[in-house]
Design a protein around this nucleic acid. Structure first.
Length: 938
RNA sequence: GGGUGCUUAGCUCAGUAGGUAGAGCGCUAGCCUUACAAGCUGGAUGUCGGCGGUUCGAGCCCGUCAGCACCCA
């Protein structure tokens, strides 16, 4: 088979993926006889668009793990699927309709949902197509969607169970309300952002007219709903006013002055207004002091009829301006200060969130369930007990801290896209939670209600169904564990969850809580938490910043114009287009070249250092594309010298042409390979993909290509057929092993090369490398003798090359070398030295000629002399520099050894090592000085 | 206010038994050496954020300060 001169990924990728998939190689392993099972759940991508770099990163890791375990022979499942992403998806579709001038209300719920399903089909298939481009190997036949019938059934079942257990309840509470979406959102969906605002100082007159109290507020419009003023109980300034009434400006209502230690004496005037219906802290205070709650906003954040007529129907921000103006004209505005405050905004819409008193459904987090422990308590316990481990470990703190201070989870959303809440209401307000309407009706009849039933129109928070993902995707049924299935038995819990730290709360903690509570099992054993992919400047990638990269564009390449067009289209704020274009043209003046999937994956894995975000660096990607090319060309070399040749594969070990024929170099590279294999296994166990990638990179490039292949070239010139065969065999087998070793990181190139190399190496055990056995280190092949000898050889080669460099010899110029030292060893090394140092010949002598004006290098007991006429001054200068350097090292070593404390307290091995270093330095120095004397340097 | 992480070569980052500071990219000199110019060979570049402590010995452990980033309230 003839390989192209350089690595061309596109064609290879196009060919192999469909073949793997069609052959069923990704299918779940369900072999009950195997002891090991490995499972990863794909964090289901949202069906809101396309994959981004974060997905690529996340999936490169998961696919490496999956392929690794599959090759190790474990029962293996990578469970794929997508998430309906309630709010996000509904927004996308609504925006599309908006562009046609249609609102969802024009369509009605049913037709709107049809539109969303159409979008879901389109987006879902885009995502899975992109995943295929990344070479991922999940079991596509098991693909699930959070709103599939089976998963929806699980949602309903668990909701009913938790309701009956008293852990899901409905109630009127103050919740985070997004007035644009007109839905409640959970605490996690609100981001607090620091913004420049104002602090308005407003005068509230006492009813008795004796004085006015000044209150500082960041939200003057909420005063319409004030039901008290509040001061600190120990605040001397106000103590005499406690219990008195003030008149609420603009409204005329009389409200009391109360005391509560919550008040910060230092902030503002030390006197604050209390609006229990529109502020979370005030809500708590209102309950403590039994204050009335007066909501003053409608669900779209306009002033409602509880307010004076003048403000009714006004938008909250218009009302703010108007109220401030009115206060000013009444002389009640004391002053306005600039003030930095935290503004709550919806993470999807960016709109200011309004605390709003509404009826919602909640999951009780810290209330004990039927078994006496709470859902959050269970989640804390299984991590504390070590059943679930985090990598890196310190994320446990974040997890614990959140669960310890957790609030009840608001799970109802006033949306259409999602799982509709299985609750039906009677005309009398009674609630019947049931699996379906029929059952609700039966329940109602049993309780004596025979009237109309109306289903709750709301849907569940997307994360509710996501929380069930570990078992819902494995076809859990309500009869579990009495009734199960092989996949559920094998893969719950899964082995490791691979995810970014940004969804530890949203998803990880909730999966632990729900899975543990509902199935009694933990959802997964390990949680590998990785960082976020950022742009080259460390900025978060986002459409609005115009700095997103599409992983597919790094694979296929993209020209500048297309990239600019992509980044500037569909912006929420088209005004940003110009700047985005400018930046893009500056950062990618010639677009992005095609790196191929393997290079991209290798880049992701190399950058996956724990506890660190990733500034994505295109030059790294380029470097790993070059690495792929290196591997490709090394394989070409090996194939050139082995294809159609006799490798002596049939000959037994120990025979004439068996392992006895292996040279020192052959044994050395095999030995290094074992060490690399062992190292790789350890890095997989520790989830250190950065070190893993580097171990493979260094073995392939630094040891195999730079050294072994060069040494093999010499051996292939040997006149011993036995030696040549052994070399061919070593080349082929080491390469074949490397291809298997690297396959989980570089699936495509390794497959393509393995198909050519494995048969030659006599190792075509399977139709695909992804099914072949993963290499396992064999301790008996570690050969410290040959390692030491090759280390010596390397040192001589380095010394020879260095001499050439120092003497400014052109690489084309071949010169003779004289060597003195261990003549047996030098005899063995001579052919290698000759080739690797580009020498005309290597002559082994007892003593170097005394009076030659030639450069000499000292390596241990060996002296190397290049036979060239040189400028005496240059060589003396070089010797002097080397002598000075050594003298410095000797001084340091001597000082260390003269330190009695060091000799007495440091471990013997360290002291011995230091003595040896000193001895070596002194010996080398002596020889250098002798050489300098011979040359009669000045 | 509470918490976490980071600060090592020009850039991006490794350095997890405390024992002679590393890689890639970039820079530089020279090479189309029959696997690879996406390459080969040689070279330069570091008060390991500051200060203090523990230790025979600190990039690594402890304390403290500074700067940056993020999370929670």
């Amino acid at each position: 088979m003839e390989l192209a001169k350089s690595f061309e990924p596109a064609d290879i990728e196009r060919r192999w993926y469909p073949e793997w998939e069609a052959a069923g190689y990704f299918d779940a392993g369900l072999d009950a006889d195997k002891s090991a099972a490995f499972c990863i759940l794909l964090p289901p991508p949202n069906v809101t668009g396309t994959l981004h770099m974060g997905h690529g990163f996340n999936q490169a890791i998961m696919d490496a793990l999956t392929r690794y375990h599959r090759m190790r022979g474990d029962n293996t499942l990578w469970q794929p699927g997508t998430d309906h992403a309630g709010i996000a998806t509904q927004i996308v579709v609504e925006r599309q309709l908006d562009a046609q001038g249609i609102s969802r209300h024009d369509l009605g719920r049913e037709r709107f949902l049809e539109k969303v399903w159409e979008w879901k089909e389109f987006s879902g298939s885009t995502i899975t197509r992109q995943m295929r481009r990344l070479g991922t190997s999940p079991d596509w036949r098991r693909e699930r969607f959070t709103m599939d019938a089976g998963l929806s059934k699980t949602v309903t079942e668990t909701f009913v169970r938790l309701y009956r257990e008293g852990l899901i309840y409905r109630g009127k509470r103050l919740v985070n309300w997004d007035p644009v979406l007109r839905t409640a959102v959970s605490d996690l969906e609100v981001v607090q952002e620091e913004e420049q605002g104002h602090l308005w100082h407003i005068r509230y007159p006492l009813v008795d007219g004796s004085a006015t109290l000044t209150v500082a507020t960041t939200r003057p419009e909420t005063m319409l709903g004030d039901t008290a003023l509040m001061v600190h109980p120990e605040d001397e300034r106000y103590r005499h006013l406690l219990g008195k009434m003030v008149r609420l400006p603009l409204c005329g209502r009389e409200i009391p002055i109360i005391a509560d230690a919550y008040v910060d004496l230092e902030f503002g005037t030390g006197c604050v207004k209390v609006t229990p219906a529109h502020d979370f802290n005030d809500y708590a205070i209102g309950q403590r002091h039994k204050l009335p709650m007066i909501p003053i906003l409608t669900l779209d954040a306009r002033i409602n009829d509880n307010a004076p007529t003048a403000y009714r129907g006004m938008d909250r921000f218009d009302a703010r301006r108007r109220i401030v103006a009115d206060l000013e004209s009444e002389g009640l505005l004391d002053k306005v200060e600039a003030h930095v405050l935290k503004v709550p905004r919806g993470d999807r819409t960016g709109v200011v969130i309004e605390p709003m008193l509404t009826d919602q459904w909640f999951v009780a987090m810290s209330k004990p369930g039927a078994d006496g422990t709470s859902i959050a308590g269970k989640a804390l316990a299984c991590v504390a007990a070590g059943e679930i481990r985090f990598f890196p470990e310190n994320w446990v703190n974040t997890y614990n801290q959140w669960l310890t201070n957790i609030q009840d989870w608001c799970i109802s959303r006033q949306l259409w896209w999602g799982h509709q809440i299985p609750a039906w209401y009677g005309d009398d307000g009674r609630i019947f939670v049931a699996h379906d309407e029929e059952q609700a009706r039966a329940d109602a009849a049993e309780q004596g209600y025979h009237g109309l039933l109306q289903r709750d129109p709301d849907v569940l928070d997307t994360w509710y169904s996501s929380a069930l993902w570990p078992f819902s995707t494995l076809d859990w049924t309500p009869d579990y564990p009495a009734c199960s299935n092989p996949a559920l038995d094998l893969y719950l819990p899964s082995t490791v969850l691979v995810t970014g730290f940004d969804i530890i709360f949203f998803w990880v903690a909730r999966m632990v809580m729900m899975t543990r509570h509902l199935t009694g099992r933990i959802p997964f054993r390990h949680v590998y938490v990785h960082g976020l992919i950022r742009d080259a400047e460390g900025q978060k990638m986002s459409k609005s910043k115009g700095n997103v990269l599409d992983p597919i564009d790094l694979i296929d390449g993209i020209d500048l114009e297309a990239l600019v067009a992509k980044r500037t289209s569909g912006l929420m704020n088209p005004g940003q287009a110009e700047q985005i274009e400018k930046r893009t043209r500056k950062e990618f003046p010639s677009g992005i070249p095609a790196f191929g999937t393997d290079a991209l994956r290798f880049t992701f894995l190399s950058l996956a250092s724990p506890g660190r975000d990733i500034k994505f660096d295109l030059s790294r990607c380029e470097g790993y594309r070059n690495f792929c090319n290196k591997l490709w060309n090394a394989s070409r070399f090996v194939l050139m010298h082995t294809a159609g040749q006799d490798l002596g594969l049939a000959l037994g070990v120990g025979g004439d042409d068996g392992s006895a024929a292996l040279s020192c170099a052959d044994r050395w590279i095999v030995s290094q390979l074992q060490r690399t294999e062992a190292e790789v296994a350890q890095h997989y166990a520790d989830y250190r993909f950065d070190l893993l990638a580097r171990a493979i990179y260094e073995f392939v490039w630094d040891e195999f290509c730079d050294w072994y292949v060069e040494l093999a070239k010499v051996q292939l010139q040997s006149d011993s057929e036995i030696r040549i065969r052994a070399t061919r065999r070593t080349l082929a087998r080491v390469l074949e092993t490397v291809l298997r070793l690297a396959h989980p990181l570089l699936p495509f190139i390794t497959e393509e090369l393995w198909q050519a190399v494995a048969p030659i190496a006599g190792r075509k055990t399977h139709p695909s490398v992804m099914l072949a056995a993963y290499p396992v280190a064999q301790a008996e092949k570690v050969d410290t003798d040959s390692e030491a000898r090759v280390a010596q050889l390397k040192a001589l080669v380095y010394a020879g090359r260095n001499l050439r460099g120092e003497m400014n010899l052109s690489p084309a110029r071949r010169v003779p070398l004289l060597a003195s030292g261990d003549s047996r060893l030098l005899g063995e090394f001579a052919p290698y030295l000759k080739a690797l140092c580009k020498l005309a010949e290597v002559q082994i002598v007892d003593e170097l000629p005394a009076n030659a004006n030639a450069p000499v290098a000292i390596v241990g007991d060996t002296k190397l002399m290049l036979q060239i006429e040189i400028d005496l001054a240059v060589e003396c200068d070089r010797l002097n520099r080397e002598i000075t350097r050594l003298a410095g090292e000797i001084d340091k070593a001597k000082a260390k050894l003269a330190n009695a404390s060091f000799v007495a307290r440091a471990p013997t091995a360290v002291v011995d090592q230091e003595r040896k270093r000193l001895g070596d330095f002194v010996a080398t120095l002596d020889k250098l000085e002798a050489q300098r004397a011979r040359l009669r340097c000045g």
